[in-house]
Design a protein around this nucleic acid. Structure first.
Length: 392
DNA sequence: CCCGATGATTGACC
DNA sequence: GGTCAATCATCGGG
């Protein structure tokens, strides 16, 4: 009786299995799964955790072109930590699924083998059942991969947003840029090489340098008054630097200086640039009555800070209005210490713009630098550049 | 929280 | 492709 029943069951089974095959047969793993796998691999999620290395470092590098390096590293570590978290969750979930899949497969095969004593269960059927189970679990895994990918994408987009997030430049970068800007005010269009140099010095990217100059030109032009103080500070600083490094026109803190060209308001050489600096920092005017015109120079300081500067310009060539009319090239004495000179700074009553009177006994006329106009006043303040024609 | 400063983006222009 | 001009979005000081 038992063998007869068994054979009947076998026949029924044969038909059922065929129909099951007809329904269950699925195509190859979808392209989407491959995409997910590729992406997880590319994002460094598929790989097991490796301390401090991996694809994410490269990803982080490409995602941050410039700005403050410290900020970058902070963002990097933040990004890394979050990606690591995602990776851990992904792997632990994956492990859980795989284990569950193994256990369930074992359980089912055991069950089927158990049942094979009671009813006909072909090895093929077991195999099929196993593949069905695997199929179900891989569908779950696919969901896991999908959600992991989404998490990585979210993190990545947030990180890329962070790249867009504005970070103020470091003081160093701002100074480097401002120094160049104010020392090339006649033509503040740095060449590509100059931009690269500025970028290198400021620890920012070339495009950030371009952005900065774009913004600066516009904003300076829109509101020159607002930038006067800043101009004074930087031109002063430049004067100090050039003096420290050893004289006029050394261009100590400026990268390669493209010649401003004949169209700018300052058709000067690099030495001329230093001259502008000097004249910007203090406009010269005739000394008050009581002294020889040739022995007294009044320096008008634009701010209290500027008072600290004249020491550095002493001994340098400048222009002074002599005799109430003509402008002459002059060399200031190397020292203004009393008794040779007496200094008076702007008082509170006089406001921020006062007079620094410097009676200089050793003030003497100098030869006019070659190539410069013989007449015309010194340029007491930075002259705005003309946006066009461009002189690049 | 407000507001000015400022780095970045975008579209038009040459 | 570089620049201008307008604008956005964030930072940072008061």
């Amino acid at each position: 009786m038992k063998p007869a029943l068994f054979s009947v069951l076998c026949e029924i089974k044969e038909k059922t299995v065929l129909s099951i095959h007809g329904i269950q047969e699925e195509g190859p793993p979808s392209a989407q799964l491959m995409r997910l796998d590729n992406m997880l691999l590319a994002e460094g999620v598929s790989r097991p955790e490796r301390r401090g290395r991996g694809g994410l470092a490269a990803a982080a590098n490409t995602a941050t072109p410039g700005g403050c390096p410290n900020d970058n590293s902070l963002e990097h570590s933040d990004y890394r930590a979050k990606l690591s978290q995602i990776r851990q969750i992904y792997h632990s979930e994956l492990e859980k699924y795989e284990q569950a899949c193994r256990e369930f497969t074992t359980h089912v095969t055991n069950l089927l083998r158990e049942q094979s004593r009671m009813r006909p269960v072909s090895p093929k059927e077991i195999e099929h059942m196993v593949s069905v189970i695997h199929g179900k679990f891989s569908a779950i895994q696919m969901q896991l991969k999908q959600s992991t990918c989404e998490a990585v994408m979210t993190l990545r987009s947030r990180f890329l947003d962070a790249r867009r997030k504005r970070r103020n430049f470091s003081k160093q970068a701002t100074e480097v840029l401002n120094e160049y800007f104010y020392s090339h005010l006649s033509n503040p269009y740095p060449s590509e090489e100059a931009k690269e140099e500025l970028a290198r010095k400021g620890g920012i990217t070339v495009s950030q340098v371009s952005n900065w100059f774009g913004n600066k030109r516009i904003r300076y032009k829109k509101n020159m008054g607002k930038f006067q103080e800043e101009a004074t500070i930087y031109t002063t600083k430049m004067a100090v630097d050039t003096t420290k490094v050893g004289g006029l026109g050394s261009q100590a803190s400026c990268p390669s200086t493209p010649s401003p060209g004949p169209s700018g308001p300052f058709p000067l050489t690099s030495a001329g640039d230093a001259l502008i600096t000097l004249q910007t920092l203090a406009s010269l005017r005739p000394a008050p009555a009581g002294g020889s015109l040739r022995s007294q120079v009044s320096l008008r300081a634009q701010s209290k800070d500027a008072l600290e500067v004249p020491d550095s310009v002493l001994g340098q060539r400048c222009r002074a209005q002599v005799g109430g009319g003509s402008w002459e090239w002059a060399i200031l004495p190397a020292t203004s210490q009393p008794p040779q000179g007496s200094l008076r700074g702007p008082s509170d009553e006089e406001g921020p713009t006062g007079y620094l009177v410097c009676c200089l006994d050793d003030y003497r006329l100098a030869e006019r630098p070659q190539g410069h106009g013989s007449v015309g006043p010194a340029l007491p303040r930075p002259v705005p550049f003309t946006p066009s024609p461009r002189t690049q």
